[in-house]
């Protein structure tokens, strides 16, 4: 494993919900290494998505420090966060979030267009195995196909980190494995960091490390000496 690319110190995130302050994240400290796959596990409301949003520059911290390759993200303004997302981070969501009126290839191009150092959109389409579906609109694709396009769109930017929020949550077993294989190979080939949020403990078996969140706290981090290849995972 290589150097840390992201260092988090005592991350805190509070939400004001009317008169109640919800502490979504309390004192989380960790590092993310280049090329590693991290799985984040925890029950609903444990702060998994909050953590991902903070790492991904989608949300601002209430306290603590966060450095990306030495740059203090906790001090970044909205514009700097936008460029951080644009150049360093790729997102994959449970519900794909594709542009309904762009074709598959155009959806990938949407992110190619704004990146500094993008990968070829056609190549990414080929990598996710959907070369023949490039001119289909999302409504003409199955859920698994849509998620693969979403993945290709995130990867095409050539980000340093790929953040996935329940990427297989809406998919069947077989399609889920396909998506996991893609994630893993991306990490292997390009030496990128991948964070996967999941409910599914089985998926955590492919990760190098597993973060357990509980009630907004990072309860423990387990190291997985021998991560399973995705095709070996079952549930």
């Amino acid at each position: 494993m290589n150097d840390p690319i992201l260092v988090a110190e005592n991350l805190q995130k509070f939400y004001q919900m009317g008169e109640v302050t919800v502490k979504a994240l309390k004192d989380a400290s960790f590092e993310l290494m280049e090329g590693e796959v991290v799985a984040v596990l925890g029950p609903s409301g444990s702060g998994k998505s909050t953590l991902l949003n903070i790492i991904g520059g989608m949300d601002k911290l209430s306290g603590g420090k966060l450095y990306y390759k030495g740059t203090p993200l906790h001090q970044a303004d909205t514009k700097q966060l936008t460029y951080y997302r644009r150049n360093e981070v790729g997102f994959v969501f449970q519900f794909y979030n594709l542009m309904p009126n762009l074709t598959a290839l155009e959806n990938i191009n949407l992110s190619v267009q704004i990146s500094q150092n993008p990968l070829s959109a056609e190549e990414m389409l080929e990598q996710v195995g959907l070369s023949d579906r490039g001119d289909h609109f999302p409504s003409q694709l199955s859920g698994g196909e849509q998620q693969r396009i979403a993945l290709a769109r995130a990867l095409a930017k050539n980000p340093q980190m790929l953040l996935c929020d329940e990427p297989t949550g809406a998919l069947d077993f077989k399609t889920s494995i396909q998506v996991l294989k893609l994630l893993k190979s991306f990490s292997d080939i390009y030496n990128k960091t991948i964070v996967i949020i999941t409910h599914n403990t089985a998926i955590a078996q492919i990760a190098h490390r597993v973060f357990y969140l509980k009630d907004g706290r990072l309860d423990r981090i387990e190291k997985n000496e021998n991560p399973l290849p995705p095709e070996k995972v079952t549930w």
């Binding site: 991904g56 936008t82 951080y84 979030n97």
Partner: peptide
């Protein structure tokens, strides 16, 4: 809003 937010997540500026 969902589409627009997705674009912002991709790293587009509000102007874009």
């Amino acid at each position: 809003s969902r589409e627009l937010a997705s674009m912002m997540v991709l790293g587009m500026t509000p102007q874009e």
